[in-house]
Amino acid sequence: MHIPDGYLGPATCGFFYAVMLPIWALASKIVKKTLKAKQVPLLAIGSAFSFVIMMFNVPIPGGSTGHAVGGVLVAILLGPWAATIAITVALVVQALLFGDGGITAIGANCFNMAFVLPFVGYYVYRLISAGSTVGSSRRVVAAGIGAYLGINMAALCAGIEFGLQPLFHHTAIGQALYCPYGLNVAVPAMLGGHLLVFGWVEVLVTALVVKYLQKQSPELLQSQEAAQ
């Protein structure tokens, strides 16, 4: 879902940088307030964690493998605002040092994966698990549903961003200059894969990790809830 340079036109890139600036500022402010001084390195460690989650390959039916993005998981563990910062940092490192995801598209990528994904996932998780004990199986289900909705919402956003390009940027004769497909192609293409395959990998990984932490160190699931 990392949008490379060249897929989005200047107006879209600029728009998402403008949207993300206040979100980043607000996230820094809230995180400074809620995170204890002791947890500052946690943001860096959380970023590195969300970076390497993608290196964990998971077997999926049909003998193939996939990997999770882990944004919702990071939001459950760190809270949505800290997740926004941690995932942004991971995305910047990926774009700048490893050429994964565009630099001009950092605003759009961060909007999809560091804002929409963790926030949708986190609040769905909180809503479904409201009032449950930390060890309840409702939390595992909530984490799974949150992960599924979070990643699909992000994919939908990416699909819409792609699909709007031919409308915004074209030559006088209607020839596309950036992503050449309209909404009717881009949205189903982005959403299809995520609804059918990648979304489920996300569900499995997020739910299983929450289940494991419930057994092994339930305090890690509560640490950020207490801070809010």
């Binding site: 964990f56 998971v58 499995l204 990790v209 890690l220």
Partner: peptide, 11 residues
Amino acid sequence: IVAWSIASLWQ
């Protein structure tokens, strides 16, 4: 196994 490894990495 993979999910547990991720969880233990977080721990």
